[in-house]
Design a protein around this nucleic acid. Structure first.
Lengths: 195, 195
DNA sequence: TATTAGTTAGTGAGTATTAACTAACCACTG
DNA sequence: CAGTGGTTAGTTAATACTCACTAACTAATA
């Protein structure tokens, strides 16, 4: 409820995400933000107290949306494999439509400096991790997923493959179809883990 | 043979790695390097032409060592699974002994700005990836690894899990035993991929 | 005495942020 | 309705700082 950002605030957030996607987080400066919006640098401070508050706003947006998706999936009553497939597809779709998201989510190193930011990044990671592990555990109980491997380990494999794929896609400057490659990877994982 | 670094150069490289490990790559500044060595900032430039040359020196060290390991493993005539296990163990050992390595290797975003650096990071990644895929392909031929899944996909899964584990270990400020957790993960992978 | 490795003092560029001011709008009130 | 005070969102100019890097000098040493 609290994140009723003003029009300008939303604009600042969205151009910030765009800058990160296109030029990396190093280039996210007040100067570059203000240049994009075509207002002066100090004008930014009419809308956010500090640069960090902008970063926090960006991250909190992502946290919200991933929490919403998480609860949506968990409450959905299809097979575990289908749920995992949905997560993969949802991620690929979201990243493809908005490559900036990938750049921000995978910038853990940079946020490490500041505790507030690193806590936020960690908790976003946690939300996804918990969701996947929950699904796997459930799938093992329902005998849809093999149970000779701990759910935590399957979780690492699933998350790891997803992240590596997205990282490669990003570093290659989005040179291949994330959805296409992702489908191949998920099919392989499906073959590996289904009972 | 070309990397016959002087004593001071080696010192600069080693404190740089230390700084990256402890405070992140953002804190790798000429000022911080010189402070650690207890010489003045300009003195650094007696030994390296630029900061980038220091970064390149660091990366080339890692590249060399990973290439050496790669050829060593490939020429070794044990089972594919054992080879993969060796890679996992080698990585965990190297990272545990020198956490800076993890910080450097996984800082792709930061090196993206500069072409020379990003090429270097990419090629280090490539060396490992090629090695793993080669081993898997061979293992499938020797009927040690299941061949109902493309070698490339198994490669993504193996690399992805390794990277995710290291990333988590690093972000948790090395709070758990990488070797111990890594063994668990590799055992699970072994169960999944062996024929 | 020539070279090496250090020093002090500085440059210029870039950073986030603040100070001081202003134009436009908006709600009261005489 | 005209004028007053207050708020909002912008401006220009400046501050204080950090960054990589350089010029000029110096002590030690081979």
């Amino acid at each position: 409820m609290m994140d009723e950002f003003s029009k300008r605030q939303k604009e600042i957030i969205s151009v910030s995400i765009k800058i990160i996607a296109e030029k990396g987080i190093q280039q996210l400066t007040i100067k570059n933000i203000s240049k994009s919006i075509k207002i002066s640098e100090p004008a930014i401070y009419r809308h956010f107290d500090s640069k960090m508050d902008i970063l926090i706003a960006i991250l909190s947006q992502f946290k919200n949306s991933s929490q919403i998706i998480s609860s949506k999936i968990i409450s959905d009553n299809t097979s575990s494999i289908k749920q995992l497939e949905f997560i993969y597809n949802h991620n690929f779709k979201q990243f493809s439509e908005n490559p900036a998201l990938a750049a921000v989510i995978f910038s853990e190193e940079i946020f490490q400096n500041d505790k507030r930011l690193s806590d936020m990044v960690n908790s976003i990671m946690q939300v996804n991790q918990n969701m996947i592990i929950k699904i796997i555990k459930n799938g093992q109980k329902k005998r849809e997923i093999r149970d000779d491997i701990p759910e935590k380990q399957i979780g690492i494999i699933i998350m790891g493959a997803l992240r590596l794929l997205v990282t490669r896609w990003r570093l290659s400057k989005y040179s291949f179809s994330l959805k296409q490659e992702g489908d191949l990877t998920f099919n392989s994982i499906k073959t590996l883990i289904k009972k």
